[in-house]
């Protein structure tokens, strides 16, 4: 079943690649960085992945960040995915180093000095530790679980080539931030554990992603059990795929996926990664 499941998805990706080398979120749509990055990882080693990487590299800005598509001129969290691809491909060139530097300088603005001062005098009750900083979806916004998880993966992998105190500190604080926003039920909501004092439930997809960012930790046993329960509860296809990747990379058995294929390129690519190249998200512990 696993081979067929994977083959169906890889074939779909090969068929739906745009002439520019990228993939849209859906077949026939404009190329976007996110589905292109996941598809390139799923098809790593094939010419299609090389064409995709050529396109994506052309989207890097002089400051080292990547924009999310040819049309959108805003730096984007997908920079983390591009740094991961560069590591997977062994391309530790200037582009890679600039991407790493941009990630090291990117942080959520909820922890800026003004916010911390407001919290200190009790003007705000942020329901999280403002001394801990993660990564935002885009500059000048708050940090959230998904971009933080991908940035941790990228930086931990990059640490083999760019190991310095700043990187190690960002990884340490980023992991602490993820643990700080963990929901009371042991999983993760999209970014906060509570709103207006009311606990927020965890979601399966963000729980899987947070666990990817926390590889190497020994204090997340309860969360891994939560992830296992979430997977058995038959969540969405995307959530199944991320939970499967997370559990496998933490050395926990995950059942073979068997859901039907749907023409959603991003989900197709992540599903393919869950039973194929999921090792590309593997990291050690703290850098």
């Amino acid at each position: 079943m696993s081979d067929l499941y994977l083959d169906v998805r890889l074939d779909a990706l090969r068929r739906t690649q745009n002439p520019d080398g990228g993939w849209g979120y859906f077949p026939g749509k404009q190329s976007w960085l996110e589905p292109t990055a996941y598809a390139a990882l799923a098809l790593h080693g094939e010419p299609a992945a090389d064409r995709a990487w050529t396109l994506v590299k052309s989207w890097q800005s002089p400051d080292g960040s990547w924009k999310p598509s040819a049309e959108v001129q805003i730096a984007n969290w997908g920079t983390a995915l591009c740094v991961t691809i560069a590591s997977v491909r062994g391309e530790f060139d200037d582009s890679f180093r600039k991407g790493v530097d941009w990630l090291l300088g990117s942080d959520g603005n909820e922890s800026n000095m003004l916010a911390r001062a407001f919290a200190k005098v009790g003007l705000i009750h942020p329901e999280r530790n403002l001394s801990l900083t993660g990564w935002p979806w885009k500059p000048n916004s708050a940090s959230w679980v998904e971009p933080t998880a991908h940035s941790l993966i990228a930086l931990k992998q990059a640490s083999a080539k760019v190991s310095n105190d700043r990187l190690r500190e960002r990884v340490r604080v980023g992991e602490a931030q993820l643990l700080d926003v963990r929901s009371d039920d042991g999983g993760w909501n999209y970014g906060s554990r509570a709103a207006l004092g009311v606990n927020l439930p965890s979601y399966p997809e963000t729980t899987g992603l947070a666990l990817l960012g926390l590889q190497g930790r020994t204090d997340i046993t309860e969360s891994l059990e939560v992830a296992g329960r979430m997977l058995r509860a038959n969540p969405s296809p995307l959530a199944k795929a991320w939970l499967t990747i997370a559990l496998r990379l933490h050395g926990v058995d995950a059942p073979e996926l068997s859901n039907e294929w749907t023409p959603d390129i991003m989900i197709t690519a992540v599903e393919a990664l869950s039973c194929g190249n999921y090792k590309f998200f593997k990291t050690g512990g703290q850098a």
Binding site: N109, E110, N112, L114, F118, L123, H125, R128, A195
Partner: peptide, 16 residues
């Protein structure tokens, strides 16, 4: 005054 995370974020940016 009780402001939560989302409410204080706009206050946190001088440009805003």
């Amino acid at each position: 005054m009780n402001i939560n995370r989302r409410e204080f974020l706009p206050l946190a940016g001088a440009g805003l």
